[in-house]
């Protein structure tokens, strides 16, 4: 337990010394928020629906989960392996589950920090309506989604040998998910054959869920989405453990 907490704190500190991590997790989403917010912020997709910005805020938080997973955690693990840091760990009694869990924990820390930042800015700029239950439910959903996505990101790190290859794998996952999951525009606006593809992307269900709970629906109304995320999480954890490697050779 002590090793797990120490390792999570150690990695978090290293992250905050790295400019690129700060940029992707704490600056890039804000740029997206301001950009899409100022263009579409006050428009509505249906006569009675919420303003664009109100569904965009939770969706951005969900995107952050995915980007931390496939970029930050994935590339960090590959770099640590390439540099022999994991090999050094391997001659100590520390377990792979501890290494993976501490990575996921500090990823969660980044995601929560990003979410707070996005919500605060959106509140200040667009005065978005917020409810206590909405916020709590959003964070619960982010936590559930993080298990699946972080596991996926850590599993990916088992496939790549170099950080370059890792970011290649990351992009294959990230960009289709970004465009097809309804983060920037509702899935209903897509042609039906694209909607069919979207339905197979875990991110789509994650976005549906976070947008729903943010607007005040109870988490329990998203039974199907929860089941998808739970299945995704189980597969992800198994893959992450199976694909974990201490060394490249």
């Amino acid at each position: 337990m002590n090793a797990y907490l120490k390792l999570a704190a150690f990695d978090s500190r290293l992250y905050f010394r790295d400019f690129l991590t700060i940029f992707w997790v704490l600056v890039y989403p804000v740029i997206m928020l301001l950009l899409f917010g100022f263009i579409f912020g006050d428009t509505t997709t249906t006569e009675v629906g919420p303003r664009y910005i109100e569904s965009y805020v939770p969706a951005l938080c969900a995107m952050n989960v995915m980007s931390v997973a496939v970029f930050t955690l994935n590339i960090n693990m590959v770099t640590a392996r390439e540099n022999g840091i994991l090999r050094r760990f391997r001659v100590t009694p520390v377990r792979k589950s501890t290494v993976l869990a501490s990575q996921a924990t500090q990823g969660l820390f980044l995601v929560l920090a990003g979410a707070v930042e996005i919500i605060v800015i959106a509140k200040l700029v667009w005065d978005i309506p917020m409810s206590f239950m909405g916020i709590v439910s959003l964070f619960v959903c982010l936590l559930i989604g993080a298990v699946g996505f972080f596991s996926l990101g850590l599993a990916l790190s088992g496939l790549a040998k170099t950080p370059g290859a890792a970011s290649g794998f990351a992009m294959i996952i990230f960009f289709p998910s970004l465009f097809l999951s309804g983060i920037s525009m509702p899935v209903e606006m897509f042609p039906s054959f694209i909607q069919n593809i979207s339905a197979w992307i875990p991110m789509t269900h994650f976005v549906t869920m976070v947008q729903g709970v943010w607007q005040g629906h109870a988490i329990t109304t998203y039974g199907f989405e929860l089941a998808v995320m739970a299945g995704f999480a189980v597969i992800g954890v198994v893959l992450a453990l199976l694909l974990f490697r201490w060394e490249n050779k």
């Binding site: 002590n2 090793a3 907490l5 120490k6 390792l7 150690f10 500190r13 290293l14 010394r17 790295d18 640590a80 540099n83 022999g84 840091i85 090999r87 050094r88 760990f89 100590t92 009694p93 520390v94």
Partner: peptide
């Protein structure tokens, strides 16, 4: 090379002690 360059000496020692 198997130690992260951006970590401080005391952080590295305390991390490994926890293992």
């Amino acid at each position: 090379t198997s130690i992260p360059g951006k970590a401080k000496v005391k952080e590295i020692l305390s991390l490994y002690a926890s293992f």
